[in-house]
Amino acid sequence: MHGTPHTVADVMTRTVVAVLAGTVFKDLVKTMDRWRVSALPVVDGDHRVLGVVSEADLLPKEEFRDGDPDRYARLRRLSDLAKAGARTAEELMTAPAVTVRADEPLPCAARIMARCRVKRLPVVDADGVLKGVVSRSDLLKVFLRDDEDIANEVRHQVVAFLFPDPEEPIRVVARDGVVTLTGRVPDTSIVPVVARLVRAVEGVVDVDCALLGPPRRPDLDADLPEAPPTDDPAEERTVAPDGCSS
């Protein structure tokens, strides 16, 4: 129903600086400084991603440089202590690497970043070969989409699909990424579905769904008096000609 959503391949950075497993510590620091990056994918000879080495992996070397670790560090930070003595990318990297496929939709990449608490992901193909890197800022590019483009997609891909023959037009307005829908729909039970589909349109920040149900039709017999109840025989009376009841 919707237009083809963007994938990771649409927003990723294709020029990627990567290092081999045997890259030494000082060369890792130099590479990060030269390219102004805080993490580097580690690849094998076929460019398959083996892991990722980040600034956090390098810091234990400085942290434990001027003294022996205390008892707490020795017991609780064995991994950091090992990295403090590491010399190569292979010894320092976090493995296996958290990656994302190039053909995955953007929400998938966002969920991986949030779940794994990382700022960027190496992008790989089906064989695990490095194709690029995607960052948080890359995923936010969809919110640069023009408001009128968003409104047009909502009109043609959501409203026209759910309400092909509306009794009256449904108005769609987008402002700063917030989509507002007004008008009447034949069944208000579908309103949550409308809101969910609109929210799924790329670039939508939020949805104000002010759709109403059909107008109430007046009762055709509204002016007729209600008949009094006569179910109880005790309530029935016969009026005699002299005005007395019997």
Rank of each mutant, 00 (worst) to 15 (best):
R171L: 08
V173Q: 04
D10W: 02
V17L: 09
P192M: 08
E55N: 13
D242F: 09
R36C: 03
P225L: 03
F161A: 15
E91Q: 15
R48G: 03
R117Q: 14
G243P: 02
P218N: 07
V52G: 03
P105E: 10
R237E: 14
R34M: 08
P215F: 08
R175G: 04
V98H: 07
D125E: 08
R120H: 03
E63R: 15
P169M: 11
R101K: 09
V37F: 08
L81W: 07
R217D: 04
V133G: 00
D27M: 09
L50F: 02
R199M: 14
P107D: 09
V43Q: 04
D80P: 00
K119D: 04
R155V: 04
T99F: 00
V29T: 14
R184P: 01
V11R: 06
V193T: 11
R216D: 10
D223M: 05
A86P: 00
V194C: 05
R115N: 03
L40R: 13
D149E: 15
V16K: 08
P41H: 08
A210D: 11
D232T: 10
R117K: 13
R77T: 04
G67H: 09
V191W: 02
C116V: 06
E226Y: 04
R237H: 10
A102E: 14
R217T: 12
L81Y: 02
V205K: 13
S54E: 05
M12R: 05
E167S: 14
D80K: 11
L81G: 07
G203Q: 05
E226S: 10
V16I: 08
T180C: 01
A174R: 02
V42A: 07
L130Y: 03
A89C: 07
G177D: 05
K26G: 07
E55Y: 12
P241V: 12
R87K: 13
G67R: 06
D219P: 00
V179W: 01
F143V: 08
W35T: 05
R101M: 03
R184F: 01
F64W: 11
V129D: 00
L130I: 06
R117L: 10
P41Q: 11
A73D: 06
G128F: 01
R155N: 12
P164Q: 11
R199V: 03
D208A: 14
A86M: 03
A21R: 15
V133N: 00
P218G: 04
L20N: 12
K119N: 08
V29M: 13
R217N: 04
L130F: 03
C116I: 01
V204C: 05
T31W: 09
G51P: 05
R74T: 11
V133T: 06
R111I: 14
L139V: 04
L75G: 02
A222D: 05
A73F: 00
E168Y: 01
A195E: 14
S38D: 13
S54T: 15
E202Y: 03
E235W: 03
Y72C: 02
L212G: 07
V24K: 10
F163Y: 15
G51Q: 15
R136Y: 00
E90M: 06
K83A: 10
T23I: 09
D103T: 15
R145W: 00
T182Y: 01
V193H: 09
D80M: 06
T188M: 06
A56D: 11
G177A: 08
P229M: 10
